[in-house]
């Protein structure tokens, strides 16, 4: 199957100093669930920013869905990212002044492509949001209209996951989304996220320092120290 993400001879360094990250070769296949582990400070977030096109490599290139990031202008890159990548962060992913449903629909308001895909799947965005919430185990309808600050952290992370999944982007990038959860809800969240990514056909790149989660994934990579300094994959 064709690779969703392809990285070739990538080197990234801040301001031309010693390399911070080196990735000789990297590929991510369609609907693959990839676990990337590494200690804190190993450049996990930098790697994700490179994948998202927020940072540009000093050398080498990143190709996502056949588009080389080098070739895209910054606003084209912004659009591309909105259309094809869903993000879940560690914590505080949600806008406090919007309701649960409004937060989930937000990505589809900024990306026409994801809106169309969500509408094709669910007829309205709100129905899609409710459907995803139910699949992620948030079945209590009273929660939907509430402000997100009234939710527990675990509930908030499921809402973030629903938002990242709506409109079925090809890639989901998750940056330590479970670090604020207790072990039980961590497992539960991960199960639900993985099964939904699988169902939507989205590839998942999951970054964490917690290797106890790695058995859920198809493939595991580690950011490890490099002899030139920095880390490599």
């Amino acid at each position: 199957m064709k690779a969703v993400v392809k990285i070739d001879q990538l080197v990234f360094s801040w301001d031309g100093h010693l390399p911070c990250i080196q990735i000789p070769a990297f590929e991510l296949s369609h609907a693959e669930a990839l676990f990337i582990k590494g200690p804190s400070g190993s450049g996990k977030s930098t790697f994700l920013n490179l994948l998202g096109g927020v940072l540009m490599p000093s050398n080498g290139d990143v190709t996502v869905l056949g588009h080389r990031y080098d070739d895209l202008s910054s606003s084209a890159l912004d659009r591309f990212r909105a259309d094809h990548i869903g993000f879940i962060f560690q914590q505080f992913n949600l806008l406090p002044y919007l309701s649960v449903i409004e937060n989930i629909c937000l990505t589809c308001r900024f990306s026409a492509r994801r809106r169309q895909r969500a509408l094709a799947q669910f007829t309205t965005l709100e129905l899609g949001a409710v459907d995803l919430l139910e699949r992620l185990g948030l079945t209590d309808e009273r929660l939907y209209k509430r402000s997100v600050i009234e939710l527990s952290v675990g509930q908030q992370q499921r809402v973030s996951a629903a938002r990242a999944l709506l409109g079925a982007p090809e890639i989901i990038i998750a940056d330590e989304p479970t670090s604020a959860l207790d072990p039980k809800s961590r497992e539960q969240f991960l199960d639900l996220l993985l099964s939904q990514c699988n169902e939507m056909g989205s590839a998942l790149i999951f970054v964490s320092h917690d290797s106890s989660l790695q058995h859920h994934f198809h493939r595991i990579l580690e950011l490890s120290s490099h002899e030139d300094g920095g880390f490599s994959l």
């Binding site: 909105a82 949600l94 937000l106 900024f110």
Partner: peptide, 11 residues
């Protein structure tokens, strides 16, 4: 957060 859900800097 807005950036991560697809808002561009111009937004």
């Amino acid at each position: 957060i807005l950036r991560s859900v697809g808002a561009r800097p111009i937004h």
